[in-house]
Amino acid sequence: MREIWDIILLMAPYAVAYSCPLMITALGGLYSERSGVVNIGLEGLMVIGSFSAAFCINMFGISVWSGLLIAMLVSSAFSVLHAFASINLNANQIISGTAINMIAGAVTVFFARNITGSGNIRVDGLRRFNLPLGLSEVPVLGPFFFTNTYATTWLIFAMVAASIFIINKTSFGLRLRACGENPHAADAAGINVRRIRYAGVMISGALAGLGGATILVTYAGEFNGSVAGLGFLALASLIFGQWKPLGIVGATLFFGAATTISNVSQIIPQFAAIPEIVIRVFPYVITLLALVMFSKSSSAPRAAGQPFDQGKR
């Protein structure tokens, strides 16, 4: 037992570090989908965030935090492409999102190659630290959350907390949810559905950009043109978490743990007995199982994915 507990403590900071970008990206997806726009372009928006942060930090020598801010701004601007297609042009949101993913992957590597030749951009990221005031000494919580943490982890936790408030307690949150559930009723109540949806998509762009840049400045340390499917995993977390901020926190921490297990299985003898293939596909199979469990009684925003047509009732 003692050994297993030690392993869990050893893995916890990695699991949290891995969960955070996923969490903030899924939270972004929540803003978009709650407003009624399905955004499978999260993956691409993360790539854009990662690239713009890497580019600015590497080329202009700005601080990591300015890099994160730029990542949010650029990704948000980029997400306007998706917003424009889905909101103004009534395009198929899945296809538009796919296009976002493909444009992001291709354009960023295109520019990265023009700059570095190899297409990879290295940056000096953040350092891990223990929280002060004896917090890291707190039993259980201390080693899990307050030891070996990144500053971005706390930024992201704060944003999740703020989002719970914004979505449930503010008039903007109410309008956002209304546009995702019944845009015509929202429209009749005098809400500008298109504007709210633009806001939803652009927030999702900013948060996904932050997610991508967080990967860069924490555990990756390098831009290489992809975020390895994390954007899609964030999307699955959104469904797994039933479109609720706290659900997302649970789902992403779970994925973080699953993926950390799969990453460290090689070096920890207790896991070495499990065949590699089982360990590798574990997070994805679990996602599928979770989808099987939650899809029948799905609480997806009712109007998500449907273009808003003012003349239609």
């Binding site: 296009a99 444009i103 992957g105 291709a106 354009v107």
Partner: peptide
């Protein structure tokens, strides 16, 4: 990668 970019932009405009 310019070829992939062109493909991606084509998808976007085809969707629109």
């Amino acid at each position: 990668e310019i070829a992939d970019t062109i493909v991606a932009v084509i998808i976007y405009f085809a969707a629109a």
